[in-house]
Simulated scan of single mutants.
Amino acid sequence: MATARLSAATCGLSAVAVGALLVGCSASVNVEKAEPKLSADKLSTTVAEKLAATTGRPKPDITCPDDLTGKVGTTTRCTLTADDGSTLGVTVTVSSVDGGRINFDIKADDKASPAPN
């Protein structure tokens, strides 16, 4: 089972048109494989849960198209889609790996993209 932790001291929040935005947040997840890897679906869920827990709002719609490999420095891009259809890019970067635990930082882009017409 995957678990995640969030350090309030490493999290900052800003409000943008798409709602609350996660900046400089950290999380970690346990995975049980020889080469730690977190599936795109589990990564999407974990990022959404961290955002919801930090902001006190419902889980946002987060989509991560790629798995996250447990190698320091590895990054993947996810997308937060707001209720109005606007989107915000989110970068997930592996900060450390401890056995089967992948620790990663979550940083949202500074600007949202408007909803398609």
Rank of each mutant, 00 (worst) to 15 (best):
T63C: 02
A40L: 03
D109S: 11
R57V: 14
I106A: 06
L21M: 14
D84H: 05
L43R: 04
P114Q: 09
S44W: 02
G56F: 08
T91S: 10
A15G: 09
D67E: 08
V92N: 03
A27F: 01
K59N: 06
A9T: 10
G19S: 07
S96H: 08
L43H: 03
T3P: 00
A112D: 10
V94F: 10
G73N: 14
G73H: 11
S39H: 00
S26V: 12
M1V: 08
C11D: 03
A34D: 15
K59T: 01
A115H: 12
A40C: 08
V47I: 15
T74P: 01
A20Y: 07
A48H: 02
E49Y: 03
S26D: 15
D98E: 12
R101L: 11
D66G: 03
A27S: 15
E49G: 07
A9C: 03
R5V: 11
V47E: 10
K37H: 03
V72T: 13
V92Q: 00
T79S: 06
L22Y: 04
L43P: 10
L22A: 09
L51Y: 02
N30M: 04
T91V: 14
A115Y: 05
L21N: 13
L80S: 07
V92P: 03
V29Y: 09
V47C: 07
L51E: 08
G89C: 12
L80E: 02
T93Q: 09
A52S: 15
N30H: 07
L51C: 02
K42E: 15
L68P: 04
C78K: 04
T63F: 08
S96V: 04
A82H: 06
T81Q: 14
R57S: 13
T79I: 12
S39N: 00
S96W: 02
D109K: 00
R57N: 15
S14T: 15
G89A: 15
T63H: 14
L21G: 06
R77C: 02
D98I: 00
G89S: 14
S7K: 07
L13W: 13
R101E: 14
T3Y: 05
G70L: 00
I102D: 00
N103I: 04
P116I: 11
N117F: 02
L43N: 06
I102R: 00
V29C: 14
D61V: 14
G12F: 07
T91M: 11
T76G: 11
L22E: 12
V31R: 04
A17E: 09
V23L: 13
D105V: 12
K33Q: 09
A15V: 14
A112L: 02
D83V: 05
K37D: 04
S14C: 09
K107M: 02
D61F: 08
